[in-house]
Amino acid sequence: MKILVMILIAYLLGSIPTGLWIGKFFYHTNLREHGSGNTGTTNTFRVLGAKAGMITFIIDMLKGTLAALLPLIFGVTGVSPILIGLFAIIGHTFPLFAQFKGGKAVATSAGVLLGFAPLFLLFLVVVFVITLYLYSMISLSSVVAASVAVVSVLIFPAFGFLLPHYDLLFTLVIILIAGIIIVRHKDNITRIKVHKENLVPWGLNLSHQEQKKN
């Protein structure tokens, strides 16, 4: 019964549409009608500014962290925190409170890893930042980090690097999370291919996307 309660709480936590609510309540702006139309961190930064974007990122990340910590909070040892965290990611992607149209799962996924495998998350953050500097695209950085996560969970345990041993459930969940992130970025990938993707005002833009930096 406790496991079902944790799954429900995790999903409801993930379903909180942070950027959408911040936009409506504090800026009188519907994010769905501006920018990319997405309610996640990147579009919040672009439409509402750095303060709103940072708050959205922190809250969306903490949704995942809190979900991953629910087994510890409830004193349940028979279920993996990464599995409970997965339901927060599902909630963020298909939120009950926003017509099941949510974000791209990057921040909440990072939050889950923060609560379960922080060193592994740190490694992926480094990958993300390096890619962002080289190509100036949050979307590409997210896709690359997700792809590297999959390769890493398959290889690192063999060398005891960051991940001390193979964990089948962790591996499967990481592959699933990465799949969600990549699929949610399919429109971005299409724009990248034609050099029309949105840029951030930082980095080298090595792929020479043509759109002006915001």
Rank of each mutant, 00 (worst) to 15 (best):
F97N: 09
V126L: 13
L62W: 00
I175G: 00
G23W: 10
M1C: 09
G14E: 07
G160V: 05
T18W: 05
T65I: 11
I189M: 14
T18S: 05
T108L: 00
L13F: 09
V126D: 03
K63E: 00
L124D: 09
K63T: 04
I59L: 05
P95Y: 02
L122S: 11
L162K: 06
A110P: 03
N198F: 11
I182K: 04
F123K: 03
V148G: 03
F57R: 01
S142G: 12
V173S: 09
I59G: 01
T42M: 03
H195N: 06
K2H: 13
L96S: 08
I9N: 07
I130P: 08
I89L: 08
L121Y: 04
T44F: 15
G78S: 08
I55K: 01
L114I: 03
F45Q: 03
P157W: 03
H165D: 15
I130C: 02
H92T: 09
V126S: 10
A52G: 03
T131D: 08
A145D: 11
V47C: 02
A117K: 14
P164L: 07
L48S: 08
A88F: 08
I130Y: 02
A50C: 01
L140T: 12
S36M: 05
L140P: 15
Y27A: 14
T93Q: 03
A110Y: 13
F156S: 03
G103F: 12
E33N: 08
V125D: 04
T131R: 02
L86N: 10
F116N: 06
P164H: 11
G102S: 06
V47Y: 01
K193E: 02
K51E: 14
I84V: 13
L8Y: 12
S36A: 06
A158I: 04
E210K: 15
P118A: 12
F87P: 12
L114W: 12
F161M: 15
R32T: 13
M6Q: 00
L8I: 15
I174F: 00
